[in-house]
């Protein structure tokens, strides 16, 4: 795959926002038959421009709900969120132009070909027909899907679908890329390919907001991370700082792993976590 994959920001287009992602007091409540459910209970986040930011948490902690609020897919009960300096609730369309979104399950229309999907995505972001076709061809080359470009997506492997999903999130050269569990379900080789792509995307100036179930992935890719549990941020910092803090606090001889930081932050033990947290069950 080419080294050029991704969003090359045009001169003068870089964001002037001090933070690529900024959330204050973010709350999401759902009404259910049994009452009100607090999915997110007041999240404060600041992601600097150019960072790869990891967002971790056990299942049901509020990760995806937070990402869906930040990406305009879910209404915000209380608090504010800005992406690339744009308030996502007040001006969602402008915010959407600044962000690329690749959600948990590669959101693809399997009856289309890879080329058709990218052309449509470009058209939805305002490209004229010819420009959309050119951008689709460029991205297909960049993600190494030239040969499969005119085949229906239904026949793609999991790794190919994930690369196409990534390409579709980059079609408009976003300032911030949200990746929700981008490697879940992929084989190890495909996972490494996606990691390489994330690094390349970030090198070209795109801020990456990554949620993941895999702590190794967070350790490898993220400049900084936050751990959410029960709808609240319970740890935030660089992976090394979080490990150092745990080592100092518990007086450990050896440096802890990110797994141990995660377990400590979420109040879980390995035995308890084995049942409900996939990433620490090995």
């Amino acid at each position: 795959m080419s080294d050029h994959l991704v969003a090359q920001r045009r001169p003068g287009e870089s964001t002037t926002a001090s933070y690529a992602v900024e959330a204050e007091g973010l709350v999401k409540q759902y009404k259910s038959r049994s009452g009100t459910v607090d999915a997110v209970r007041g999240v404060d986040l600041r992601v600097a421009t150019g960072e790869v930011f990891g967002f971790l948490g056990p299942n049901g902690a509020g990760k995806s709900t937070t990402v869906r609020m930040l990406t305009t897919l879910l209404s915000i009960t209380a608090g504010t969120a800005r992406v690339a300096g744009v308030d996502v609730a007040a001006d969602p369309d402008r915010a959407r132009r600044s962000m690329g979104v690749a959600l948990q399950e590669a959101g693809l229309d399997v009856r289309q070909t890879g080329r058709e999907l990218l052309v449509l995505q470009a058209r939805l972001f305002g490209f004229a027909a010819k420009a959309a076709a050119d951008r689709a061809a460029e991205l297909l080359t960049l993600v190494g899907l030239d040969d499969a470009a005119d085949r229906r997506i239904k026949g793609y492997s999991g790794g190919m679908k994930r690369r196409l999903d990534l390409a579709s999130a980059l079609v408009h050269e976003p300032e911030v890329l949200f990746l929700d569990e981008p490697t879940t379900g992929l084989d190890p080789a495909s996972r490494l390919t996606v990691w390489d792509e994330v690094r390349r995307i970030n090198r070209n100036g795109t801020t990456v907001f990554l949620t993941t179930q895999y702590l190794e992935e967070a350790d490898q890719l993220c400049d900084r991370l936050a751990i959410i549990d029960g709808g609240l941020i319970v740890r935030e910092g660089t992976p090394q700082r979080l490990k150092d803090e745990l080592r100092d606090r518990l007086g450990l001889d050896a440096g802890p792993t990110l797994d141990e930081v995660f377990l400590d932050a979420t109040g879980r033990t390995r035995t308890k976590a084995a049942g409900d947290v996939q990433e620490v069950s090995a």
Partner: peptide
């Protein structure tokens, strides 16, 4: 199918 497969959210995340 679009809703269940996630493509509907992809469309909603676009400025359309």
């Amino acid at each position: 199918e679009d809703i269940e497969g996630g493509y509907f959210d992809k469309l909603r995340a676009a400025p359309v």
